[in-house]
């Protein structure tokens, strides 16, 4: 009987080698270890054994069962591994096929540049102010130290609605409205549309966008104006950017200055973008004129401030190398989607 058991084990081992699927493995398990299987059949003959022999045979039969079970388990693992490998092999795909895209929209390039400028100034403690586009002459000119007969009015061709109401020619009136409503410290930028009666061409549009800035507090100096705008230029155009301040004239600032930045296209060596000068004019600025402070209800003896303004369209064109302003307002999606 002992020998029968050993033979059974050998036979099971032999048969196991030909098994190559979970199904035939299960059949094999039933054949040897099932309720009606070979092992059970053999053990049925245990009754004929002497009481001395029974424990010995019992032990051997347990050993054989355990052995077969462990062989079956090992074989099972082996088969599963092969099957998994095969499955993975069958799942190979062409990874160069194009992706399934949920197309997202693109911001207008001017918004991209504006967002960047906003971020820089928000970080410097400037809030964002807004004002009307249809504005009173008072805010657009008079309160900005530009009375009706002022020659500076000739520099801006104004669209008028009535004698006293016009389309703002600059975002500067927001300065006045902000100062009227708030007490120093004031730090705001004010982006928005402005209007001048220029015919549309590659560099002009009757509607364009400016960003105004204003800081008013005790002890603000022209050094602060330079420091803040220099930092701004480095953030927007790159840390190698140099700035240069040239005296200029605006009715509502005194002293006034224009800021040039070193050309970011050529690094200052001179190229087409900068008109071979190495510098690009970016913004107008100055210390807020005491008359403007006074008219807005701020005491110029106690407070001082600086203001600046820049053209978003122009900076956008420079930043992306866009050579025709009309592209910005034409909205061909093949253009917009480049940004």
């Amino acid at each position: 009987m002992e020998e029968t058991l050993r033979n059974l084990l050998e036979e099971a081992k032999r048969e196991l080698e030909t098994v190559d699927s979970i199904k035939s493995l299960e059949e094999l398990r039933v054949k040897y270890l099932g309720k009606k299987g070979e092992l059970t059949k053999i053990l049925r003959g245990m009754g004929n054994l002497s009481p001395e022999e029974r424990p010995v045979v019992g032990k051997i039969s347990n050993e054989v069962r355990a052995e077969i079970e462990s062989l079956l388990a090992a074989k099972r693992d082996e088969i599963l591994k092969v099957e998994k490998e095969e499955k993975i092999r069958s799942e190979y795909i062409d990874i160069t096929l194009p992706g399934k895209v949920h197309e997202i929209g693109h911001k207008h390039p001017m918004t991209k540049v504006l967002d960047e400028i906003k971020d820089i100034f928000l970080g410097l403690g400037f809030s964002i102010a807004e004002g009307p586009e249809i504005e009173l002459d008072y805010y657009n000119f008079e309160a900005l130290n530009t009375p009706p007969d002022h020659p500076a009015r000739d520099l801006q061709d104004t669209f008028y609605i009535t004698k006293n109401i016009l389309l703002r020619t600059q975002t500067s009136p927001v300065q006045v409205r902000t100062m009227e409503k708030n007490k120093p410290p004031i730090k705001v930028i004010s982006p928005g549309r402005v209007y001048r009666s220029d015919e549309t061409d590659a560099t002009h549009s009757p509607v364009f966008n400016q960003i105004e800035g204003l800081a008013v507090d005790e002890g603000i100096t022209m050094g602060d104006l330079k420091g803040v705008l220099n930092l701004f230029a480095k953030r927007l155009f790159g840390s190698d950017t140099k700035t240069k301040f040239r005296p200029h004239y605006f009715p509502f600032t005194e002293p006034s200055a224009e800021m040039d930045v070193s050309c970011f296209a050529c690094g200052g060596k001179g190229c087409r973008v900068c008109g071979y000068s190495g510098w690009i004019e970016i913004l107008g600025s100055g210390m807020v004129h005491p008359n403007v402070l006074r008219m807005s209800g701020i005491d110029p003896e106690k407070y001082s401030g600086f203001a600046f303004g820049m053209g978003l369209d122009r900076i956008t064109m420079l930043s992306y190398g866009i050579d025709d302003l009309r592209l910005l307002y034409e909205n061909d999606l093949r253009f917009i989607k480049q940004f």
């Binding site: 809030s127 410290p185 603000i220 602060d224 301040f245």
Partner: peptide, 18 residues
Amino acid sequence: YNNIEDTLLKGTQITAGV
């Protein structure tokens, strides 16, 4: 103008940009 030293609003109150 370019001989004026750049400063960063050193004497003024801190504001939060919002």
